[in-house]
Design a protein around this nucleic acid. Sequence first.
RNA 1: GCCAAAGUGGCGGAACUGGUAGACGCGCUGGACUCAAAAUCCAGUGAGUGAAUAACUCGUGUGGGUUCGAUUCCCAUCUUUGGUACCA
Length: 827
Amino acid sequence: MQVTLCCFFFNIEDQTVIYQHPMRYEFSKTEAKWQARWQQHNTFKTAEESGKPKYYVLDMFPYPSGTGLHVGHLEGYTASDITARYKRSCGYNVLHPMGWDAFGLPAEQFAIKTGTHPKLTTEENIRSFKGTLQAMGFSYDWSREINTTDPGYFKWTQWIFLKLYERGLAYMSEVDVNWCEELKTVLANEEVEEKIADGYTVVRRPLRQWVLKITAYADRLLADLDELNWPENVKQMQRNWIGRSEGVDIDFELRCHNRSLRVYTTRPDTLFGATYLVISPEHPLAEKLATAQQLIEVKAYISEAKLKTELERTGLQKEKSGVFTGSYAINPATGEPLPVWISDFVLISYGTGAIMSVPAHDSRDWEFARQYNLPIIEVIKSPHDVQDKVFEGKDSVSVNSSNNEITLNGLPFSEAFERMASWLETKKVGQRKVNYKLRDWIFSRQRYWGEPIPIKHYDDGTLRQETALPLVLPEVEAYHPTSTGESPLANIPEWLYGRDEHGSFRRETNTMPQWAGSCWYFLRFIDPDNREQLIDPEKERYWMNVDLYIGGAEHAVLHLLYARFWHKVLFDLGVVSSKEPFKKLFNQGMILGEDNEKMSKSRGNVIPADQVLGKYGADAVRLYEMFLGPLEQVKPWNTNGIEGISRFLSKVWRLIYPEHEEQATRLSEDAMPEELQRRMHKTIKKVGDDTENLKFNTAISEMMVFVNELQKAGSKNREAIETLLILLAPYAPHLTEELWESIGHTESISLASFPSFDPSLVEESILTIAVQINGKLRGTFLAPAKSPKEFLLQEAKRVESVLKFVEGQTILREIVIPEKLVNFVVK
RNA sequence: GCCAAAGUGGCGGAACUGGUAGACGCGCUGGACUCAAAAUCCAGUGAGUGAAUAACUCGUGUGGGUUCGAUUCCCAUCUUUGGUACCA
């Protein structure tokens, strides 16, 4: 499998060729041959009409970057391709498509620098990506290729946006956004950390933005997670992100003000222990509550908080700060006056922007109380003195919690919660409330290279939808954002302004974020050329859900949450028939560089795909990526290891083209010896099970065992070899096609059906039984399968190496596990 | 801090529902073939004691426990990775 296409060896002295072997496996020739043939014969074109059951296996489609693909990117694609090929051989009608998530910042940044239209950059990158994917021999149905920047595609992205708009799920709002200085654009909350990590500056800044009301779907996004066959950790991450909590809104009457202050708490059971209230600096009452005496200090604190970046206010800052307003509120349970403080640890965007502090039972409140010398009152029975240390446990009972109307004393958490919540509700000072951490999705970006948001702003302030979709991007001279924070589109008057029967208008200059196109692309693969509809309902019903979705764990919340949200909206619109898009999700683990570090340009440890492909060929790369370890695991690349895979493929080749022979060997049509037959059936079972369960590493190892066996036995049995080739075909499609042809087949091996195994031949007929003394292995013996216990016991006592341990000892117990072992407990 | 996952030879990793730990591959050692090399094939390869292909002891992060028997179950603890971070 080395690059050596022809192995000429010259003798330096007499200049004659002394050895030439033409039938060594030449991967580059063979791979090119079969890739061309598959293309020519449309081998992997998905049938539209088919009586077969369907299987939809999807990769997270890539953003075609300028740096090209590296071996890490190929891991998931290889896994999905093996699955696709395997499912085809099992008789499924398989949909296995690929496309491009091609709107995005890098192409635009490049355009700003060089003036190259992002479209050109994108086209070129796609060409390179596609070349690599085709060189890997992936069995995509390329006739369904889609590109999110194609007007025929984003027409429907815009269409979905308008549907959101019609349903009140897309609205404009002046919001504090995460503004990225360098990129001159707004980022989603979910993107901020990533960009900061990349070295960008992100600040808070108020801007008029389009926002999608994902919070309206919070409950459904949470509830429907339960039915998904997804990795538990991804579901958990989404649950945490949605962050549902059940609590109570409580109104605290303000002394000296004719109004009340509403707080949200999940611990109404601790109300008797509330000793002060805290409001966020952005709270509308913040300044109003300041007494004359405190006003200067309060104002200073508020403006100081404004200047702090998000990072300073949340992140690393542990030390709490705050200022007393001078005002008091009344604790509805105790009637005691509680001082109202302002502190930036209270977030305006969550709950009511105000909290009641129970320092005895909340670590943040405890810290704050300590710092400002506020009283700490125990109301949950604590194992230690709450003056010294906070007690946050919920598995205790209430104490010191009673007044004339209500007592919680002695009650565990849930009962105390219920009793207090009901009491507050009857007193009309509280109300049960469910809150979510999830925020609405800031959806606009001040960029050129994105889907234009199809909305017209009229002079009189009304908004109307664009009627002619797609609304395409105009050509521009320069891609720089405007200084006002508007996208480059604001610089194109011809595009920007217009007039129609409703009056003159200005178009929306914001574009959509990159996530938009990937929210629904899996639907378009089903019906990529439909000009009338987003998707044909009948086709949608046949193909959805995605049966297997493979991609990186980095999309656990962003893409996967957004896509689920859109899908649910489309479900409500009747466009799709299912509530959830992805039935089964699988996250492949990252492949690290040879230095055990994440691959990155700066570290210089990136292994480019084309490089290893050129050196070892697609089959070896495919097999090696899968052999590296469990698919879900993070694992380092090791170029040495791929040699072993090359050797394995050469071994398979030599089963049919033995060394020093130019012709394919003649296969034997005789029946197999029983030993080999058992081996083969075991291999079929193991490879089938493991491939089904995406345990490709052990499937490959099993095939290696089988090949070693065939080689050792020198077997040329046709059935055995053909079986091997079919099992191996999803993994190493080119080599197996070539060998399949050379042993006389005229049809592609991808049309061959996966063999079935005979259960009676999978079990061994002769088993090795272990003999233990006191649980330690002391010997073994052979016994036929299904031997009775008595027989095993009797045989075990005859094993020579065991005798000396038994002699002179009393056997206290005899344990016999059929087909496994015999254990003597002696003394 | 909190949540989740994982710790097995020199390395990547295997081991079904508690039943012979280390499959398969890399690497390494020796041998065959060769003038020589490459390729290929054969044998060996967890550690220790032993002349030994005899035998025994130890061994799945660490310390305990349950069990005839634990990589697998329980408790504690350490480390690593991923996620999350004042969400009241």
